[in-house]
Design a protein around this nucleic acid. Structure first.
Lengths: 194, 194
DNA sequence: GTCTATAGACAGATAGAC
DNA sequence: GTCTATCTGTCTATAGAC
C-alpha cells in the first residue's frame, strides 16, 4: 500500500516557487518542442513537467508564448557560447569546438531547426535569422577570415543540424550515400578537434 | 447576376478524371505542406484545389499517406535532376547549377526541410536521408572529387535550404550579420554560375 | 467523380475551487 | 501555487447521397 505522501504526490505536483516552476517547464518544453515542433501539445509539456495542462498555459499565457520563450532562450544560449568562444586565442578553432559541444545537446539543435522552418511565426523567424547571422558575423569579426571561409563554417553547421535532425547516426547501414557522408563528416570534425 | 454555369462551378468542382484530380491535389498539397509542414490541414489542401475536404482524404486514404506521397515525389525530383546533371560534361558545375535551379522552387525546398525535421514519421525520414545521401554519393561518383569537396557541396546546399526556409531575402536590412551572409552566398553562387 | 452531413477525437484556453 | 471541470474550436475520417 502506498504511503499517504506518495499518494498525494502522484495526484498533485510538489509545490514550487513560481520561478523554479517556470524554469522546470521551460526545460520540459524544450525537449517536447524539440521532438514535435510547434505541433507538440501543452499537454505533453505538462506531463513532462508532471503538472496539469491548464497550469502550463496559465504560467506562460499561451502555447505560442511558451514556444517563443523556449526558442529565444535556446538561440540565446547558442549566441552566448559562440560569443565566448570568439574571444579565445584561436577563435576559429574555438568556435568550431564550441558548436560541436552544442550539437551534443540534441534537443537544442532540433529545436533550432524547428525554428528555421517554423518561421511562420514572425518572432521566431526573427530570432532564427539573428542567430544565423550572428554565427557568421562573429566568425568574420573574431578570425578576420575571408567571407567564404565564414560561410563554410556556417554551412557546415547547417549540415550538422540536418544530420542530427534526420537522426542519421541511428540509421547507419540503411543508405550507402548517407553512410559515406557521415563518415566524411566525422573525419572532418575529428580533424578540427585535433 | 451570375450565370447558371458560374453558380454551378462555385458550388461544385469541375469534373476531372481521377488521374488529373490526383495530380492537381498533389500540386496543391505540395504548396500547402511546404508552408505548414505536416501540421497543415487537409482542409487547406482542399481549398487550394477547390474541392471538398473529404474528397482529398478519400482519394489518398489519409493525410499521412498524402504527405508521404507528396514528399516522395519531391525528393524523387531532386534526385532525378541531380542525377541528370551528374551525367553532363562538367558534373560538379552542372550539379551546382541544377541545385540553384531547384532552389528557385521555394515550395520544393521548404517541403524538403520539413521532411528533414518531420522525420518523426519513419518513412519520411528514410526518404529524407536517402535524398541527402544521394546528393553526396552522386557528387563523389561523377566528379571523382575528394570526400571533403562533396561534403562542402552538400553543406552549401543545406545552407541555401535554411536561408530559403527563414525567408532571408525578404528580410534584408533587419540583421547586419544575416545581410553579410546573404551577400557572401549570393557572390558564391554567381561565381559558380560564371 | 464529388458533395453534404456528421461522428469522434483532441487541443488550447477559461473559470473557479482549494 | 496548483488542480478539476469544462467550453469551444478545429481537425480527420466515415457514411451515404447524387
Amino acid at each position: 500500500m502506498p504511503s499517504e505522501v506518495a499518494v498525494k504526490e502522484s495526484a498533485r505536483a510538489v509545490r514550487m516557487s513560481g520561478d523554479e516552476r517556470r524554469e522546470q517547464i521551460l526545460l520540459a518544453a524544450r525537449h517536447v518542442f524539440a521532438e514535435g515542433g510547434f505541433a507538440a501539445t501543452t499537454d505533453e509539456v505538462a506531463r513532462a513537467a508532471a503538472i496539469s495542462q491548464p497550469y502550463v498555459v496559465r504560467l506562460f499565457g499561451s502555447k505560442r508564448d511558451l514556444f517563443v520563450e523556449v526558442y529565444r532562450q535556446a538561440a540565446g544560449e547558442v549566441i552566448e557560447v559562440l560569443t565566448a568562444a570568439a574571444q579565445e586565442a584561436d577563435p576559429g578553432e574555438a568556435m568550431g569546438r564550441a558548436y560541436l559541444e552544442l550539437i551534443e545537446d540534441r534537443d537544442l539543435l532540433r529545436l533550432l531547426m524547428h525554428g528555421f522552418i517554423a518561421s511562420a511565426d514572425e518572432e521566431v523567424g526573427r530570432v532564427a535569422r539573428h542567430c544565423l547571422g550572428e554565427a557568421y558575423r562573429l566568425f568574420v569579426a573574431s578570425t578576420g577570415a575571408e567571407p567564404d571561409e565564414a560561410r563554410q563554417f556556417v554551412a557546415f553547421g547547417m549540415l550538422l543540424n540536418v544530420l542530427v535532425a534526420v537522426d542519421a547516426d541511428a540509421h547507419r547501414g540503411e543508405d550507402a550515400g548517407m553512410d559515406a557522408l557521415i563518415d566524411c563528416v566525422v573525419l572532418a570534425t575529428r580533424r578540427a578537434q585535433a
